[in-house]
Amino acid sequence: MKKIWAWGALLFGILYFTLPLVGMTNFSLKMRRGEYSFEAYARVFGDPRFQETFTYSVTQALFTIVFGVLLVVPTAYWIRLKLPGLRPYVEFVTLLPLVIPAIVIVFGYIRLYNTSSWLPLTGSAFGTNILLMFGYATLALPYMYRAVDTGLRTIDVATLTEAAQSLGAGWTTILARIILPNVLVAVLSGAFLTFAIVIGEFTMAALLNRPAFGPYMQLLGANRAYEPAALAVIAFGITWGCLGLIQLVSRFQKSAPPKA
């Protein structure tokens, strides 16, 4: 009796989640009438716009990750070490991007950093790229901060710091050589998640008019029939890849001997 509803719930889940995946895969292979082919994929990969936008988004993602790590790791570390009273507030702030819609945030950017403002970031392509990167960092903040903070919880920050200080290490050394390696797995999970978010992001890139992968997919979807399905399969594969890498690194950490 109990098993029946359990299997029922699971079966419903499997059906609901596999159908769209089967649907898009099936559709992506049917570009040639009457036979299955990889024609749609060939078209997508052959499209220079695909290559350009994909490269652009990957570059953006990498910069976002570097910036996010440099911003979040020292902050989370510092708060754990010296300002534990601030933790609830900082945590609240880092969760805000989950509550404030991205479209509202980017709307604020457009009005705040336009050509006639004190910081005219949207005035040049370079400035807009920077602004977009900050936007992505904001979107990824909840995930990045939580990952790093959880990682820091598992190590004794205060003792490690004091030990390093007693050996004469400065702050940069402590962060780069002691703290970062110890939370590397957490940082990596945050990084892969950031990558997945940035690659597929549409709203910010579209409204800031940058040639990113998300708007490209949307444009293609509006004009073509089969290529979008192929793109969806590719995007799903990228997401799987990122999440799979997270699993891999966290498993690696579990199997690693505990640090004394």
């Binding site: 989640f17 649907g23 992506s28 995007a235």
Partner: peptide, 27 residues
């Protein structure tokens, strides 16, 4: 693991997947 992937599989590609499934010529 799948939930981790699917919860991040939003946006444009998700729409494509559902169009290919429940759309007029969906599976």
């Amino acid at each position: 693991t799948f939930s981790g992937v699917a919860s991040n599989f939003a946006g444009v590609p998700l729409a494509f997947a559902f169009l290919a499934t429940l759309g007029p010529v969906g599976i």
